[in-house]
Amino acid sequence: MSDQEAAELVDPAVAIKEKCSQTKECAALLEKFNACNDRVASKSATTETCVEEQTDFLHCVDHCLAPQLFKHLK
């Protein structure tokens, strides 16, 4: 999405999500999520999944996003 040209339409949600994932709480969860992804990818066989980590991270982003987004929509 970042390589879009200026003339093209940009979804306000993208920038807000980006900003939200950089807040203190969400960044910590994102780090956990990324660490989990790396850990799972580094193993040849594992039953571990990163669903929970992703859920926690997205939950954090959502609650930051929800009050802001509709102000940018009609």
Binding site: N37, R39, E48, V51, Q54
Partner: peptide, 23 residues
Amino acid sequence: SLLTGYTDPPGGITLRDGLYYNP
């Protein structure tokens, strides 16, 4: 949330053909 929430599947999740990931 469903309509705007599609993501890549998180680590450890493999999807069958024709399925997509939505948390």
